[in-house]
Design a protein around this nucleic acid. Structure first.
Lengths: 224, 224
DNA sequence: GCTGCCCGTAACCGCTTTATAACCGCCCCG
DNA sequence: CGGGGCGGTTATAAAGCGGTTACGGGCAGC
């Protein structure tokens, strides 16, 4: 999730940026109005935090420009407690409005509420070690490599392993999770599925580094 | 548009009620927590204004109860300026949080912003990347090209995709959104609809640039 | 009643995914 | 030493999925 922070106050900009980074978001920073608009178009962020008082173009103008082409969530900031500003900001299409000073916790809480309302809180990628799983996209990423597409079953298997990263998951539990309780040839299916998954995520599938076998017990995901 | 106002302070309740009535909304009033829950279930309001300090059941409890069964927009009020309360309220699923005293204008502005975000106000032109959707006109525009007319189903499909632009939307969600849950041949319907939509919006329908398939997962709109 | 559009239904194709089966090597254990 | 169980690998068959074409019924407007 990428967010644009636009504020001419360098300290505050860095503070907000740091807060958002800590919360697991990618951050793009702008120091003035035109910069904000340019970065918005270049980066297509998923949310914008916008100061009203900025050189070049006021936050109002930036907000207006953004709303002409996008419904992205916008939170506006101001030092003044003027009601006029609040009404104007929200009328221009902003979603929320905070008066400085505010605490990082407050900002984060409001951002989360807004993302939830905008229906973007999902697709929070599960991750374990260098591995991050995107359930919606059916992809997994190892380190900075390009995402790898997973099939339905591969996704369910890996989801189970990631959820229990570092611990062995018994074959029985895996079978139940992935296929939903069956008998007979199931052991074979799991064998096959693990093999195919290894081909996709291991750099050398013959000597697994991530998806290791716990002989007689099950499989486990190694968190590096 | 019907709104529920829950506050044990009679004067404030009436003031808020009056403000909302003036703005053209229907208002239902509750004086305590249990009353609020009961009225919520009976009246199915489109938005809830909820005081935190109430006899019977606190605003938190009421909010929790509401969120168990509905995603209706909720704005919470408090006399205290405690950050704890704000974080807790928003974590419980509230959408906004106001500290008393506040002016009617502020409340109205925030309500409007929230309704807009919740998509309960019409004629908000959606757009994503070079693509902009006009719900009222049933048209879509790609870049500067002439608007293309869409059918009812095509519009709903594209609306869903635009709302989640850049992210994969599962076939299930699309089916529910466009047709409203059915069985049997549904997969075929979506296949068809996507095909027809591509004919209209893709410059080369055989190699989609905008409406791409996420195999085994769903479809996604690419934001250029 | 004719025409054109919308949309549901079906059939076909090529490709991917999943199921089934067979074979291999290994280790444990009598 | 020789099964037998287990896990890995390879091969092949079956099922499913997505794209495409075609057809027909319903309905509005002329």
């Amino acid at each position: 999730m990428k967010m644009l922070v636009a504020d001419d106050d360098r300290d505050l900009r860095e503070l907000i940026g740091f807060t958002l980074s800590q919360a697991g978001y990618l951050v793009v920073k702008a120091g003035d109005g035109p910069d904000a608009v340019r970065l918005f178009e270049a980066e297509s962020p998923d949310l914008v935090v916008l100061d009203i008082n900025m050189p070049g173009a006021s936050g109002f103008q930036v907000c207006e420009a953004i709303r002409k082409r996008s419904r992205v969530p916008v939170i506006m900031l101001t030092v003044r407690g003027e009601e006029e500003d609040l009404v104007r900001a929200l009328d221009l299409g902003a979603d929320d409005y905070l008066t400085k000073p505010f605490s990082p916790r407050t900002l984060l809480a409001r951002i989360k509420a807004l993302l939830r309302r905008a229906g973007m809180e999902n697709s929070a990628p599960l991750s374990a070690g260098r591995l991050s799983l995107d359930i919606d996209e059916h992809t997994v990423r190892i380190g900075e490599a390009a995402p790898v597409r997973l099939t339905r079953l591969e996704l369910r298997l890996l989801q189970m392993l990631v959820a229990n990263a570092g611990h062995t998951v018994s074959t029985d539990r895996l079978l139940i999770q992935v296929w939903g309780r069956r008998e007979g040839t199931d052991r074979q299916l799991l064998k096959q599925l693990v093999h195919r998954l290894r081909q996709k995520i291991e750099s050398d599938p013959t000597t697994p580094q991530l998806l290791q076998t716990a002989a007689g017990a099950g499989y486990k995901l190694i968190i590096a």
